[in-house]
Each structure stands twice: as C-alpha cells, then as structure tokens.
Amino acid sequence: MGRVVLDDAAIRRALVRIAHEVVERNEDVARLYLVAIPNGGVPLARQLAANLLEIAGHELPVGVLDTTLYRDDLTRRGERPPLRRTEMPSAVDEKIVVLVDDVASTGRTIRAAMDALMDFGRPRAVQVVALVDRGHRELPIRIDYVGKNVPTAASEKIVLHGHRGTLEPPLEVRVEAREQG
C-alpha cells in the first residue's frame, strides 16, 4: 500500500545528518534546546538528542510542546481536537530552540508552535527540523533541516509506520492515497 519514501536505515541516516547540520550551524551547542511537536516529533527529537550527545558531547534538554490550543482553525471545527501533553523541562530564554516535527506541510503547525514557544519566554533563535517536507506551504515559513523533500499531490498523504506509541523513531515513511471524502 503506497510507496516507501524513507525506510528504517534512511530515517536513521537522515537523523544523523541533521544532527551534524545542527552542530555545523550552531557553534554554541550548549545553548540548543530540542522541542518536539507531539506526537510524531517526540521520538525524532529524542533520537536527535542522542545523536547530538554522540557528535558534540552535550546532553541537550528535550521538551514537548502541544500546539492544539494555538491552532487557527479551532472555531471552524465542530469537535474540538484532543489536547496532548506539554512538558518544557527548562526555560527557553536565550536558548536556540530547535522545533522538531515529523511532517511539515502548510506551516500552520510551526506557526502555532512559535506562538506557544514565545509564551514560555524569549528564545535567542528558533529553527525547525522536519523528517519529511511535503510542500503545500500556506505561510512564509522555512524548514531549516529536512530529512527528505517529498513532493506530494493534495490527494496523497504521508504516513509514518512502526513503533507507534514508543519512543523509537519510525521504521518507514510512505506516501499513500487519501481516502475519498
């Protein structure tokens, strides 16, 4: 069903490469703060933190930031979406915050995440990681670190498979057809 765009090995390689790019771009590694957007961003951020520990020798804080209360479509929907946990273990002031999401698309989630982040303090800079960038941007938002660019049609969706509900990164990323309706 669908086509595989990233397999297990490719996902792991992408996360190693992104960790190297993060270090290359930010001399002051100790200032980095990884903030995952749940649910998909959480295992990716943890894996990136492990990779950064190996590469740069710094144990970085990993936060989780739910963006639901900051969404721009809440009053256009009949049912309110369930909230997810937010856990910000350290202050964001003067930190270089790296937001980590699984799939980037319209940019609206990243916009919401930035607004939420600002309510926790004033970071020195905000950068964004996405394992997959599928395009269809609706806001002027750039993804700084991309695992893989996957151009998609609106009729397609990106699906992450494997290790659901665990802290391991996904095993596989596929492009699948959206159900009709």
Binding site: D66, L69, Y70, L74, P82, L83, R85, D119
Partner: peptide
C-alpha cells in the same frame, strides 16, 4: 474521561508563567 483528560492539560497551562492561551480569542 475526555473532560478530565482535557482538564489535566489545562492544569499545565495554569502552571506556566504566561497563564493564557489564545484558544478562544475573540469569543
């Protein structure tokens, strides 16, 4: 259970320095 679960997340908002989220802005 859904209301109680939602309340647990709302409790976290009350612990933040900025205890306000924009969810019902303009309502």
């Amino acid at each position: 259970e859904r209301i109680l679960e939602t309340a647990a997340h709302m409790q976290e908002v009350g612990l933040r320095e900025v205890k306000r989220v924009p969810t019902l802005r303009g309502r």
